[in-house]
Amino acid sequence: MSAANARRVEPSVEVPISVTVNGETVETTVAARQLLADFLREELRLTGTHVGCEQGICGACTINLDGEPVRSCIMLAAQVDGSSIITVEGLSAQGLGPLQQAFKDNHGLQCGFCTPGFLMTLSTVDPDEYPGTAGIREAISGNLCRCTGYGGIIRAVRTAWDRPDHG
């Protein structure tokens, strides 16, 4: 049996995990106290996941965990044993994906710090659950941007999700 789903009742400060990140299986040991965001950035060198507030407010660290958008700064790396993760690096194999291109074309970013979080939220949720412009606002309500005033981001999502201006 691999580290994945192994019974680990005995408390320990080092925790073996097996996790799929952007399609690749990673088997390693993490410190029990290590945050998932820090594991991705410091151990796997996937620095596209940004750490903003470190208290689950700003959304910059959002990743796709088993098909749900999740804040990686308020999760422990130890908790993702057996899971599958997509980070912003995994969004597109080559160049920019359609959502990323729409952000670029519509002024959906300025400094870019919050952008990976927005991209991961928007690429993980089902657009049908968030209809119209109100739905787009709802979908991005858990991500903070201090540059754009959100107008460019909403235009970008309208383009990516193929929605008319007034919907």
């Binding site: 019974r7 680990r8 009742v9 005995e10 408390p11 320990s12 400060v13 925790v15 029990a32 106290r33 945050l35 820090d38 470190e54 208290q55 422990l76 130890a78 044993d81």
Partner: peptide, 25 residues
């Protein structure tokens, strides 16, 4: 803004969790 040093356990049954809770108070 990081968790303090701690240990971690991930029991697969409620009984195991309760045993740990009893042991570590």
């Amino acid at each position: 803004m990081k968790p303090p040093p701690l240990s971690y356990s991930r029991p697969h049954s409620l009984d195991e969790a309760l045993d740990l809770l009893a042991e570590h108070g």
